[in-house]
Nucleic acid binder design. Structure first.
Lengths: 204, 204
DNA sequence: GTCTATACTTGGATAGAC
DNA sequence: GTCTATCCAAGTATAGAC
């Protein structure tokens, strides 16, 4: 939300190497996007979170936009790894909904989807950023399609469209949850979905 | 009425009246949010679009944030009016999907949902803006619920959750369409929905 | 590699002329 | 009511010391 209180510090003040600093900046950028949004993710605010100097943003990443893209890369890497792990347990639609529910809860708690949504929304005001963000969102969409194919494949359904809708719901629920500061409606929705999943599953 | 010697000046010729300027600024703010996003909607960029001076933003609205909220108000007013008109033609789920499809297409073409999504996303980086935006999004949610109730009411379904999901899909599809510069996936999704609507309708 | 200092730019906001 | 001028804060980015 809109910066109440002290921002999250992700690194203690010692004398680290280059790799530590890069990581600290990426983590700080994630935190900044999550807590202050795209507009609040400035070189200065990120560096303050990382406990290092503002100039290091440009030394290590060349520009703020590049650092934010690196943050998006990192979030994608972490989550898709977790998603793959979770998807391997899934065989049918009810299971998928249950797993998706748990994972989405994690995503909201950790603010990962916030990072996605803020980068997508923010891309419109930074020339050239859009295509780079799109490139990094693509794996999420591919994953969604793979998950849908796994449980609805061979049913003649247009899994492309279903996957697209799922990503849209994901982002939209995040926007609303962020706006309200309330994740309960999203949770309730997943509960509804889990009661309907067997029904839909039996239709196919 | 006008006394002799003091002709009533309806409007100065060289400069527009206050109301015209306000409207121009609001329209310009909508355009700025749509084309340049929240981050690109500065007092200077908006005033340039409106063809007037930057200082007038503060004279008429006090702050940029207030102008953006006025823009959101105007978008809500325009669209909800249109929505109400459209909803009155609707009696069942297939009709609702058809009407929603047409309206959503309009929303995308005119960039109305972009304004919503940008304001929601941008609110995280401007202290105090979140609650104000939430207040203005509420009518959209109420409308969605009313529409859902109209076609699914009395079926025991949790229409609150369904309406919440619909708003989420709406915002999410917009984010993705904006990112890709492509509205076709959203259109395809509505087409899918219109083939499934009768099926769901018959279930209830 | 990291820090300090600084040039440059943009944006929010106000004062005062017209 | 509108415009010009200006101040001030914040942000990007670079140079150079350590």
């Amino acid at each position: 939300m809109a910066r109440p209180g002290t921002p999250t510090r992700v690194r203690k003040k010692s004398s680290p190497g280059a790799e530590q600093t890069r990581e600290a900046l990426v983590d700080a950028a994630i935190a900044a996007l999550r807590e202050d949004g795209f507009g609040g993710a400035s070189a200065r605010s990120i560096a303050a979170r990382a406990g290092c100097n503002q100039g290091l943003v440009f030394y290590h990443f060349g520009s703020v936009a590049n650092l934010l893209l690196a943050a998006l890369d990192e979030v994608s890497r972490r989550r898709l790894e977790e998603y793959e792990r979770a998807l391997s347990e899934v065989d049918d639609l009810p299971q998928l909904v249950a797993v998706a529910s748990r994972i989405f809860q994690e995503d909201l708690d950790e603010g990962y989807v916030t990072v996605l949504a803020e980068m997508i929304g923010g891309a419109s005001s930074t020339p050239g950023l859009g295509p780079e963000v799109a490139k990094r969102i693509k794996p999420w969409r591919s994953f969604a399609k793979a998950a849908v194919d796994r449980v609805l494949g061979g049913t003649g359904l247009a899994t492309d469209d279903v996957a697209h809708a799922i990503v849209a719901v994901y982002l939209g629920l995040e926007l609303l949850a962020q706006l309200d500061g309330d994740r309960k409606p999203a949770a309730a929705l997943f509960e509804q979905a889990s009661t309907f999943a067997p029904l839909i599953g039996s239709l196919t």
